[in-house]
Nucleic acid binder design. Sequence first.
DNA 1: CGCGCAATTGACTCATATCAAGATACGTGG
DNA 2: CCACGTATCTTGATATGAGTCAATTGCGCG
Lengths: 219, 219
Amino acid sequence: VRHRPDSLLFQEGDEAETCYRVLSGTVRLYRLLQDGRRHIVGFAVAGRFFAWDDEDRYSFAAETVSEVVIVRYPRAQLDALVVAQPELAWRLLALARKELGAARAHALMLGRKTATERLATFLLGLAAEEPRDGTGASHIELPMGRADIADHLGLTTETVSRCLSHLRRDDLLTFDGQRRCRLVRPAALRALAEGGPTVCQERMPAGAVADRAAPPFAA
Amino acid sequence: VRHRPDSLLFQEGDEAETCYRVLSGTVRLYRLLQDGRRHIVGFAVAGRFFAWDDEDRYSFAAETVSEVVIVRYPRAQLDALVVAQPELAWRLLALARKELGAARAHALMLGRKTATERLATFLLGLAAEEPRDGTGASHIELPMGRADIADHLGLTTETVSRCLSHLRRDDLLTFDGQRRCRLVRPAALRALAEGGPTVCQERMPAGAVADRAAPPFAA
DNA sequence: CGCGCAATTGACTCATATCAAGATACGTGG
DNA sequence: CCACGTATCTTGATATGAGTCAATTGCGCG
């Protein structure tokens, strides 16, 4: 099924009768606080499943960011398949584990990282999903607006914008239009992204363990 | 197995060969950034399993908070059981879903709530795990110190302390020793906890903590 | 009973939010 | 194809919640 940008797929609390897979485009998954504060749980890009986890009601809402093509699978069918093929359950479990890891990395970020560190983490996460071009400098596409990024990272659009400018001034990345950029020194970004643990997915070859002492202070 | 307070069970990155179940006491699960900033993923209390999800290496470290009694299950055995009993896979999947929901609620909190709102959310979460005494005012036990709470909520000990004092001044709760308190007006707290959705553990008909009924992994 | 660590409280700083303009990109219609 | 209008992004000035530094208090324990 094809959808125009910014159209609602379902809301938090709706009957969870279908789960989805993205074929192309980007979908934002989010929750709201009653006063309107929004938190974007994550972005689903091509190839990703979402809404396969909820018991009964969706635990978040989903909206398209860009033009999107998705497939819808009835939940009942999925459940039946899982019962029929035990191996599938194993697969789902693995998926769940990955998502759990991602959710926890995200929480760590929200709880303990500065604005610039969050941006670095986010950009590296996106870069990791882009086709590897072998060269160090990956260039990435930001399908979502600054406001979406802000709500994902627990910041404001202004802060996101400022930090991006800041990273640009420090030559950690360059822009090529507002929504396309190139990571110039991924290593530096990675250092910024943390003082820390392996985030979303990549394994850095071996231990690059630095000393724990210096407060972060984004330069 | 019995452990003294503040003893290390395993570290982030260790071979994940065993998973655990808490019989009594409280365990803190945390991750560190290289510069030492700590984020407490969660607290495992009596009845809870932890470290059952990781692929290969632990994705967080675990330390006892209070005196703790735990059971250790070899991972290999667990995996074998899962293969043998497809139904068990289903159980684990359900557990994973619950944890995912909790992790996301936590992320929402870290990203978009104020210090006081976080405290309120946290206290309500604890209250929900306490035996229901029917009356509105539940009284809860805080096994962990302020520093632990702070690292769980993405705050500092000072802020935690200040917010608790603040809640006390507003008569939302009373203290009975530093680590025991009583929620006087849960409704008000809940309102504070959000402007928002039902957080960590909404309904759960019988406070059944998924595990309760699970056959011991022991063999 | 007094020692010591944890918690509270206070004064001040700093990062990020908020408020407010500009600047840039983009779609639309002339 | 260009001019305009609008939405998004950037930048600046200021406000503020939470962090930091620094005592002080009080509980818990030997």
